[in-house]
Design a protein around this nucleic acid. Structure first.
Length: 219
DNA sequence: GCGACAG
DNA sequence: ATCTTGTCGC
């Protein structure tokens, strides 16, 4: 993998982010539900090493089509707002090992729901060219009303006067997840797809599978 | 000035 | 992210 031109300071990362942000494409010409969905996640060890995992599922039955992992050392510290510079290298390496090209990437983090509107999902989408969106477990930016208790209820996530995502209830009476568009997919489709991926649990089956696999790859 | 701050 | 026991509920 190429990590030679990878930013090593906060200033450099901010500059890269600002440049790539202009390449985000928010149009959505994809189908209501893509044939497959690819989830990504990273697990860390007690030091600076981690394992990235990507898992492609058939959207209809949520069965595994393909799964790949990649182990690496961290090349960038965790910095709120610059999260992608830490996890992107191993994730891209794992993605390159897939035989089948993803239809859409489901990221463990945010897309537009980011201080500069360029979270991990946007970054991943721009670099790969594939549709991508984010499903975060906790809020990063913005405020929202509490969604109704029923699964499927949602409230807009607003930051600085603009809707950057949605707080979506994926299970009755359970804390909502934060969905935001990343690249080549709109918020409505991202929310519908997220609901298709959460028939039983709060988090998408894609991230659950990728989380499981990345932890296993760590040992 | 005082918190908040994806994973 | 990760460190961790018990506990409540289906």
């Amino acid at each position: 993998m190429h990590t030679g031109d990878w930013p090593s300071t906060v200033e450099e990362a901010l500059a890269v982010q600002e440049r790539l942000r202009e390449r985000v494409d928010l149009t959505d010409d994809g189908p209501e539900l893509p044939p497959t969905v690819t989830g990504l996640d990273v697990a860390y060890d007690e030091r600076d090493g981690f394992a990235a995992a990507v898992v492609t599922l058939e959207t209809a039955g949520l069965t595994v089509v393909e799964a790949r992992t990649h182990r690496a050392e961290a090349v960038f510290p965790y910095e709120p707002g610059l999260f992608a510079f830490r996890e992107l290298p191993p994730l891209l390496a794992a993605l390159e090992r897939l035989d089948r090209e993803p239809d859409v990437l489901v990221c463990d983090g945010h897309g537009l729901a980011h201080p500069r509107r360029f979270g991990l999902a946007c970054h991943l989408g721009v670099l790969t060219g594939w549709p991508a969106f984010g499903v975060g477990k906790t809020r990063f930016v913005g405020t929202h009303a509490d969604p109704a208790p029923a699964r499927g209820s949602a409230e807009p996530l607003v930051d600085a006067g603009e809707v950057v995502g949605a707080a979506l209830r994926t299970q009755d009476g359970v804390k909502p997840v934060y969905v935001s568009a990343g690249h080549r997919i709109d918020l409505a489709h991202a929310c519908r797809l997220t609901l298709a991926l959460t028939p039983r649990y709060r988090l998408p089956e894609t991230t659950r599978q990728a989380d499981r696999l990345s932890r296993a790859a760590l040992r």
